[in-house]
Design a protein around this nucleic acid. Structure first.
Lengths: 182, 182
DNA sequence: TTTATCATATATCTGGCTGATATATTTGTC
DNA sequence: GACAAATATATCAGCCAGATATATGATAAA
């Protein structure tokens, strides 16, 4: 069997509760899924075409908007395909952290460089964490209005839990590299 | 500029403290880097050829072994290239967790299925954590014998910290999905 | 008002990388 | 002696990111 294509399912998943354009799909992925999945236009548009060809989605031109715009909907076959995938166990759970790679080879570059990589990483996490906390608050407030909120909250809490672990590690790591002060 | 090729640097990093064959490089990646990076033979062998062409590594046939075997070494230019990359800030720090994807769309599939995805994830983490703890012990014991150990330990501690956060989240998540018992 | 900038919107291409597959030899085990 | 597992290299299809191209509507500043 060929490599399973995950983006098919991501798009169908997003289409399963609202019709969307390719552009909107990209935005959803870049906001809601940002912390655990990604996708580029270079894969979204061809995949959308593919889904239509296979009868898992439909494409229609938006007439209300002045702008050239194609709206995609999920079909019944699409829902079946999505449900099948959701039932299957997850295959790919992986991390790809260049920061850790540079740290692993850190002896070649010295302590100061290692510390600066850790600090850049820490800054990025500290900057992103507030958004996750905001999402959490928001979702908890409206948890009863929509059943999907509970599942979104689950993934947000994953992000918060891991980000806090990252920050804890940053402190520990800097200490190990001799940066005890501050 | 084209997409920067990270595997170049991973291989050079590994070659920077010992000569290796392609097969051994794959093993190093699958053990030491496993928790934050990956690579397949399908990219390792072509990349090795590339590194030789560009003068960043050398290739020689192993005469001692009975088996057909090519040993690779880093060159001075290779060390310069590696040092340059290590100096640059990390670009790609990302997570790709299919488990979270399936959870995000969990409303389509129901609570029981969501719980079973979480439990499968938890099992995998619980199975892997002891190896990380073992590595930590080992590295801490011999921390003074080799300068590189400190940097390896840093990445192992990252794994331990995040894995513990994952387990904490698993419990929280199952509770949220109504699995209070046990 | 006009000009610049940003957000919206679709599409394609290069090249990197995974996972699968193929092939062959050596070592260890029953 | 037979079989399985580990060693070892190599290639290919297909998925995907990042870059690039193109064009229009909305908004704000000059």
């Amino acid at each position: 069997m060929a490599t399973e294509k995950k983006l098919d399912c991501v798009i169908l998943g997003l289409l399963s509760h609202e019709e969307l354009t390719g552009y909107e799909i990209k935005k959803r992925i870049d906001t809601a899924l940002k912390y655990f999945w990604g996708a580029s236009y270079g894969s979204i548009y061809p995949t959308l075409g593919d889904l239509v060809t296979r009868g898992l989605a439909t494409k229609r031109i938006d007439t209300k908007s002045k702008r050239k715009k194609f709206i995609y909907n999920i079909t019944d076959d699409g829902r079946t395909y999505l449900a099948e995938w959701l039932r299957l166990p997850a295959e790919k759970d992986e991390l790809r952290y260049e920061t850790l790679l540079k740290l692993f080879f850190g002896n070649e570059a010295g302590e100061l460089q290692a510390i600066s990589h850790i600090e850049a990483f820490q800054e990025k996490i500290e900057k992103e964490l507030p958004y996750l906390l905001g999402s959490q608050q928001n979702l908890e407030k409206h948890i009863d209005s929509d059943k999907t909120h509970k599942y979104y909250l689950l993934t947000v809490k994953f992000g918060i839990q891991t980000y806090n672990a990252y920050l804890k590690w940053c402190k520990e790591a800097k200490k190990m590299l001799g940066k005890d002060y501050e």
